[in-house]
Amino acid sequence: MALTQHDIDREVTELQDAYDKARAGGAPAAHHPPRDYAPYRSSALRHPKQPLVAVHGDPETVELSGPAFGTTDVTALDNDLTKQHHGEPLGERITVSGRLLDGRGRPVRGQLVEVWQANASGRYAHQRDDHPAPLDPNFTGVGRVLTGDDGSYSFTTIKPGAYPWRNHANAWRPAHIHFSLFGDAFTQRLVTQMYFPNDPLFPYDPILRSVTDESARQRLIATYDHDLSQPEFSLGYRWDIVLDGPSATWIEEGR
């Protein structure tokens, strides 16, 4: 029998309580989700059980450098997901802007930001997404851009819909946009998801709840920014992204 939302909620609460208790006892904050997070069923057989092996970087460590991207890797329209077809996609048009920063608050310049998302109905333009919500012939839901000199990025898109999945009975993902980010070092690589403020599905989603630190969870939620909204055109959301992990410049500075 499929697990119910109630079953999942109970597991999520237990893990949340255990984390909060550990924090109260002085444990350090966990910024990332544990790879072993039972309420997200697919994680069960896909997380290592051995501890990670620490590599103490010297500047020669290959991972302290990373791939380079340039203007040939993107086209001018790649950051406007509403202009990839002849017609306009359905849904609420939005502008999503922010800055890509390293852990010291320095802008990450000229790096590749990739996004993908469901359409306004919550359907991905992907063969294996077969839930009964309409595809939109005017929306694919894939974009990319290079960050500017101040680490800034911006996308024009439509607000994605929530969608069901099969983790448990009546499982729904809150609306989200998938992001893929590169830093100056391969160690800074990040794939994550951006959420929209005040989504009623937050408490029920084991993927969001896998981030057990409340303030870390808040960092996944964009802010509505009226100054980013464009008259007669789009609603604005701001989301800054901070990369983890050392880079060659951190090592040289004696981090």
């Binding site: 990332h32 991905y124 992907h126 294996r128 993927i207 870390a216 996944l220």
Partner: peptide
Amino acid sequence: LPPTPSHTVGPF
């Protein structure tokens, strides 16, 4: 700055 948390790449 505390980092932005990671999330799964998902199925799609």
